[in-house]
Structure formats: C-alpha cells, structure tokens
Write a protein that binds this DNA or RNA. Structure first.
Lengths: 169, 169
DNA sequence: CACAATTAAATTGTTCTCAACTGAATTTTG
DNA sequence: CAAAATTCAGTTGAGAACAATTTAATTGTG
C-alpha cells in the first residue's frame, strides 16, 4: 500500500509570491534564488547516487579538465574562497577522490589532483548530465542564449559599480 | 596610485569556466549558481546595514504583505522548510522584528507576526531596492522577461518529471 | 641581509539548506 | 469514542557559503 507520495514535502514550484508591489529587481533576484534551489533539488538525487554534492561535482568537473589545480585556481573558476573549499576538498580527499599535496616550488600552495578513483568517476556522470538535460527540456539554443544573458548579468553585478551614467559599454 | 581595484578578493565575474566539452545543462546550471551568488554579494552589504540576511529579508517581504503568516505559509511562498525557517524566525524574534505565537484554534501552528519595529523597517528598504535596481542596470522590460523565463524553468524543474514525450504543455 | 608587505591555505564563527527524526495536535477511520 | 494516519513545528546532523582571523611562505624594499 502507500502509493502515498508526498515524497518531496512539495516545496518548489513557487512562481511570484510577492504579488503586489515589489520592484522588479527583487522579483528577478528571487526568481534566480528559486531557480538555483530548483536546480539543486534536481541534481541532488542524481548526485547522491554518486556520493557527491553539487559543489563537489563542480570541483570534479574542473579537475577532470585540468588534472591538477591549486586551491586558488579552483576558487577562481568557481567563485569560492578557501573557507568553502578547504573543508570541501578535505571531504573529497576522505572519499578517496582527490589528493592534496603541498607544492615543492611554493609551499604556500596545495595541489589538488584526481586519484584513480576520482578519474574513474567521470565515467558515471553521463547519466547525471543526461537527466539534467531532460529536466531542463528546452532546446540547446534556448539554453545557450539564456546562459549568455545570465552570465552577462553576473558580470554586471560583479563590477565595482561604475554607478550609472558611465559610457555605453 | 592604486587604481588597482581587486576590491572584492575578485571573486565573481567568472564566465564559462569549463571551456571544453560540458553539456549545456551543466553550463546553464552553473550560470544560475554563479548569478545567485553574485546577487547575494550585491545584497549583502546593503542588508548588513539593516542587520538582515537575504533569506530574512525575503521573510520580511512576505510579512509586509500578509501581516501574519504561519511557518508553513512562509515556507510555501519561499520554498523553504521548517528546518530552515525555525531557527531563522527565532533570530528575527531575537532581533525584535517578529513575534511567534501558537495558534489558539490549531495549536500545531505558529503565527508569525511583525512587531512595530519589524513594520517600521519597511521604510528603510527603499534604498536597498533602488541600489539593486541600479546594479542590475537593465530595463524593466528586459528584467521582467528574464524573470518570466526563469520562473518557467523553475516550474519545469519542480514538476514530478513527466519524463519526455508528454503532451505539449 | 632584515624587515615589511603580500600571498596561500586553513581555521573559526555565523547563517543557510536540507534530510531525517521527534513530539504534539488534529483529523480520519473503524 | 479509540486507534491510526496525518500535519505542523522544532531539533539534529552534515554540508555549503562567507567574513574575519591565523599561520606559513614568498616577495619587495631599504
């Protein structure tokens, strides 16, 4: 018995909660915030299966490309600082997916490298990527153009605020 | 000298880190993840000034509209569960911004209401909203259409996966 | 060379997020 | 009405995120 789902405590699917007088900036930010959570909820069961969290998955994506990176390099790619990465990398180390070794040339740096197990895991992520692709369910072109808009906005927000009235960029 | 900004430990502004073979779904998700962080970094100094975090600000936005809400209602609007909200509301209570009282009719529920101080705070958020509007720096129409796209995607991701091949929605 | 400034990583403390569980209250059913 | 199921809020534990600080190593400058 019990086809009784209620599997997900039914959060998500909120669409514009503050109906009345909110400025569009607040609504846009909330839309991003909600979408980010929705992505997380979508990735989570897939990544759970691999024993990974989403930020851990991002670190591995970076390492599958570069093989070896310093903590700083990873932080620059993902926009994270050592306060986030140090414990995260320690967990990936504990899981046997990466190694952490001080650089001989510059002992301040720590080189993060994939272990065999970490490299091998790449073979398993195809399913995850397929599932996410399905879940998004929009065309590649749509997804790409949306991505470009989001990246442009990210960059605009990351600028040291040229205030307005700056020359057209 | 020192036009050398690097003001912000220079995180943010990352634009497509995984250059080579990533599926668009991964890149789109990462773009959302990055933008969400960028929004947070933009809001943070503004909200710090009011002694609020972004999720706390969202709760207050909801309460300024509805005056009184149960924990569950707030959770439904924001997509958060009691594990997140209970301690958050306790902090807003400690800060003197909301009150928490068991409902007489249904003692399972807790009614969250604004205090005078909480209501008064609404007068101060105009500056925050103005600053965010400036930071986004795109037209109201652009922001609105982007918001609509994001909300649609959020909803798609929050569906119980009708797999593909479902009838056109 | 010595001292100062800078850089890299780690640590600490606060908050957010969610899963899983607990406890109390309400509703449903037999 | 009594037992079972459900609902609501809270707690616990793990992980993420960031500010601020600490420690060690490197670079710069006198």
């Amino acid at each position: 018995m019990e086809t009784m789902m209620a599997t997900e405590t039914d959060q998500g699917a909120q669409t514009a909660p503050f109906s009345v007088p909110l400025p569009i900036s607040d609504m846009l930010c909330f839309a991003v915030y909600s979408l980010s959570h929705a992505f997380n909820r979508t990735y989570k069961p897939l990544l759970d299966h691999l024993g990974l969290t989403y930020p851990q998955y991002l670190v591995l994506l970076a390492l599958w490309q570069h093989k070896v990176m310093t903590v700083k390099q990873i932080g620059e790619q993902l926009g994270l600082d050592s306060g986030t990465l140090s414990p995260l990398l320690k967990r990936l180390d504990s899981a046997g997916l990466v190694s952490r070794t001080r650089d001989r040339k510059d002992e301040r740096q720590v080189n993060i490298a994939l272990t065999e197990k970490g490299e091998a895991l790449q073979a398993d992520v195809g399913d995850v990527q397929m599932a996410i692709g399905d879940a998004i369910g929009c065309s590649t072109d749509e997804a790409r153009s949306l991505r470009i808009v989001l990246e442009a906005l990210t960059q605009k927000l990351s600028q040291p605020e040229p205030s307005e009235a700056a020359d057209a960029v």
